[in-house]
Amino acid sequence: MSVETRRNFGTVRLPAGFNGLLPALVLIVLFFVIPVLALLLRSVTEPEPGLQNYAALLGDGTYARVFFNTFLVASVVTIVTVLVAFPVAWMLAIMPSALASIVFGVIILSMWTNLLTRTYAWMVLLQRTGVINRTLIAAGVIDQPLPLINNLTGVTIGMVYIMLPFMILPLVGTLRAIDPMTLRAAALCGASPFQAFRRILLPLSLPGIAAGGLMVFVMSLGYFVTPALLGGTSNMMLAEMIAQMIQSLLNWGLGSAAAFILLVVTMALYALQLRLVGARRMSGGI
């Protein structure tokens, strides 16, 4: 027995089937984990060792405004996305497949189209002299152009546009998993369409809404491109501030501290989402 044990002593034995993971792990550890950790290290060592970067970020009103804006934009975008996505997902879940595939086609086209292309289109559409303002003026709805860009409105429109597919597609799955018979039973029990929606359909789709909504929220928190192009200077978001600190101000200490805060918040919410989705799996996909 002891001879047997000793024979393997000192040799590294990888568990069965593990080898395939090695290239991926090397890549991720070397070019993801280490660079990110190195960045975090910078946040407590530059310009000198200590937590002064975090103190500066959390103590200063200007930065607090950026944090507030980031949460505000992410919240507004999430709420609007959920409200817009739910009816669409609902119809997609039950409409004839020929019709549904047209709508899915539109969603995929929009999702796969280059992010900058889409954002560029919104810049052109929303600007002061853009199509939307001109059309509204021509129709006599307004006589002064509406400020649609470089503010919360612009960011919200552009971000909702990008997030919609990420909300619609998983929600369709959730809704398709609900047995239509359940809703028929509710109707026969005397529930009006509104009551059936409030008491049955909505609660049964809530796990999907929560998981999708959280994902949209997390993605919105760290979004860079769209807020930078469609948002205004007065409502800058965290990602843009981080980029500025590094690119324009070359303040690596402050920039990496802000990045670390973004990372922690994101990861915490992501863990929460995993728990939501995991809990859903355990309860049998309901």
């Binding site: 990110v36 960045l39 981080i242 980029a243 990045a259």
Partner: peptide
């Protein structure tokens, strides 16, 4: 996939 790209971007940029 879930980490904000901007964090990874500045990390890998520095690296």
């Amino acid at each position: 996939m879930v980490l904000p790209v901007v964090v990874f971007a500045i990390a890998i940029y520095a690296f």
